[in-house]
């Protein structure tokens, strides 16, 4: 069974279609990238997947859970890392990890397990006990990944995760996601960074005006070919 299955999903705001007849599915361990400019429908698709928005039509499922009818249950299978991971500033990385794990039923997770999650996320040990107000964006992303690892999420949902990260941090994050994917967790990532999409994704779906217009196999393409495919849809810059 596919881990994620979207079938003919549309989302209308008034008479404007943010997403139109979108169908996609992918399996555990696969990394799927949604690529497109602002307003293409990437974030709306992720919100429907997370159950934060109800589709106007179509079906959305994660595993065997129908997301629109059982959103809380569906979210327990997923971990969400937005562009800016919002955590409690007065608490440390470890305290935030403990809290957000407990929120989804992980209150009995041992300290050793939580430390292992932080270690696997790549966050330096000296930062674990530091207040979040001193964290960089990349460090917050790592705590977000640690939360996903702690709750043993089957699906990782990422929204512009590398936006604002320096090249080294972005590279480290990409490595981390590949590792997570290799362990069997499905990953869906919305991005407008086509190079990062080519780098991380097993499949890339290009969205335009809410529709899936093209699917790419980034492993079989060079960076130039991916770029040409993208610009072929959206046009050369003026």
């Amino acid at each position: 069974m596919a881990l994620v299955n979207l079938t003919e999903v549309s989302k209308l705001y008034g008479d404007k279609a943010a997403v139109s007849s979108l169908s996609l599915k992918f399996d555990p361990g696969e990394v799927l990238c949604l690529l497109g400019p602002n307003g293409a429908g990437k974030t709306t698709t992720l919100k429907m997947l997370l159950g934060l928005e109800k589709p106007s039509s179509g079906s959305v499922s994660v595993g065997d859970v129908d997301v629109p009818s059982r959103p809380d249950e569906a979210r327990r299978l997923m971990a969400y890392i937005p562009e800016m991971v919002a955590l409690h500033e007065r608490f440390s990385g470890m305290e935030n990890l403990r809290y957000f794990s407990a929120l989804v039923g992980g209150s009995d997770l041992s300290s050793a397990h939580l430390e292992d999650c932080l270690r696997r996320s790549g966050l330096e040990e000296e930062a674990w006990g530091r207040r979040l107000s001193g964290y960089s964006k990349g460090m917050r992303q790592k705590v977000g990944v640690a939360i996903a690892l702690a709750k043993a999420a089957q699906l990782l949902v990422l929204d512009e995760p590398t936006s604002g990260l320096d090249p080294k941090a972005a590279f480290e994050f990409a490595e981390l996601i590949r590792e997570v994917g290799a362990q069997g967790t499905g990953v869906i990532m919305a991005t407008h960074d086509l190079f990062r999409a080519k780098d991380m994704g097993d499949r890339v779906i290009i969205l335009k005006d809410g529709k899936a217009v093209r699917e790419l196999d980034p492993k079989a393409m060079s960076y130039d070919e991916v770029e040409s495919a993208y610009l072929g849809i959206f046009g050369e810059p003026a």
């Binding site: 809380d72 979210r75 919002a86």
Partner: peptide, 18 residues
């Protein structure tokens, strides 16, 4: 305002519990 609420709910925390 800070986004913690959205992150909590979208991470699977029950809104009722919050």
């Amino acid at each position: 305002r800070s986004g913690v609420l959205a992150f909590s709910v979208s991470s699977g925390a029950p809104p009722g519990a919050i």
